[in-house]
C-alpha cells in the first residue's frame, strides 16, 4: 500500500458516496447513466470473484464487499424507486460494443488462460470503458448538475492516482508492472481528459458544467 493507492481508493469510495447522496437528495437519477452503473456492477462482479478464492487483507476484502454492495444498491435505486426519473432516450450509448470489445481483448490478452484470469482481464478492460455512456450522455445533453460532475471527477481522479501508484510501485517493488492494469488505466484516465478540462475551467470556478 502507498499513499497514491490509498488516496485513489478513498476517492473511489468518495465518488460512490457522492453519487448515492445525489440520488437520495434529489430523489432523481436524471443525468446519471444507468448503463454506466450496470457496467460497474458487472466490473465488480467479474473481478471480485476472487473474494472466494484468496485473501489479501481485511482492507481489501471490506473494500471489495463495499464496491459490490454499493454498485448493486445504485442499480437497484435507479431501476426501482427512481425509475420514473430515468430518461432512457438520453442514455443511448450502445454498451454492447463496450462489453464485446472488453471480452475480445480479455480473451486475446489475459495473463493466463483460466476462467478467473480471463474474467479479471475482462473486468479491467470493461472498467476502463465503463464511464463512456455517462460521458456520452453529458456530451449529448451538454450539461450536468454540479454534484454529478463532482462524482465523475472523483472517479477520474481515482484512476489518475492509480497511475501514480503504478509509477511508485515500479520503482519501489522491483520493477513491478502489470501491463493489463497499466494499459487499461491509461486509456481510462485519457477518456476523462476533456471532462477534467471543463471541470477545472468551469465547475471549480463556481459555474455549472456546460459544454461550449
Amino acid at each position: 500500500m502507498n499513499i497514491f493507492r490509498l488516496s485513489g481508493d478513498l476517492l473511489h469510495l468518495a465518488s460512490i458516496f457522492i453519487l448515492i447522496a445525489r440520488l437520495h437528495q434529489t430523489k432523481s437519477c436524471a443525468g446519471i447513466s444507468l448503463k454506466t452503473q450496470y457496467l460497474y456492477l458487472l466490473v465488480f462482479a467479474t473481478r471480485y470473484l476472487d473474494l472466494f478464492l484468496g485473501f489479501v487483507s481485511v482492507y481489501n476484502t471490506l473494500m471489495k464487499i463495499f464496491f459490490l454492495a454499493s454498485s448493486g444498491y445504485i442499480v437497484y435505486l435507479m431501476y426501482s424507486p427512481l425509475k420514473a426519473s430515468y430518461d432512457k432516450s438520453l442514455d443511448s450509448f450502445r454498451v454492447e460494443y463496450i462489453i464485446a470489445f472488453a471480452a475480445v481483448v480479455a480473451l486475446a490478452f489475459p495473463h493466463k488462460y483460466s476462467v478467473v484470469e480471463v474474467l479479471w482481464s475482462f473486468s479491467i478492460y470493461l472498467e476502463s470503458l465503463a464511464i463512456i455512456p455517462q460521458l456520452f450522455q453529458m456530451t449529448r445533453t451538454g450539461e450536468a448538475d454540479n454534484i454529478t460532475s463532482h462524482y465523475v471527477f472523483a472517479l477520474g481522479g481515482y484512476r489518475a492516482l492509480y497511475m501514480l501508484n503504478w509509477f511508485y510501485r515500479y520503482y519501489t517493488e522491483d520493477n513491478y508492472v502489470d501491463y493489463i492494469s497499466w494499459i487499461a488505466g491509461i486509456v481510462q484516465t485519457a477518456l476523462y481528459g476533456d471532462f477534467f478540462y471543463i471541470y477545472i475551467t468551469r465547475v471549480l470556478k463556481g459555474k455549472s458544467f456546460k459544454l461550449p
Binding site: 476472487d50 481489501n60 501508484n165 502489470d178
Partner: peptide, 10 residues
C-alpha cells in the same frame, strides 16, 4: 512472484 495471481489492487 507470479504476476497473474498478484491481484492485490482493487
Amino acid at each position: 512472484m507470479d504476476r497473474a495471481s498478484a491481484h492485490d489492487e482493487l
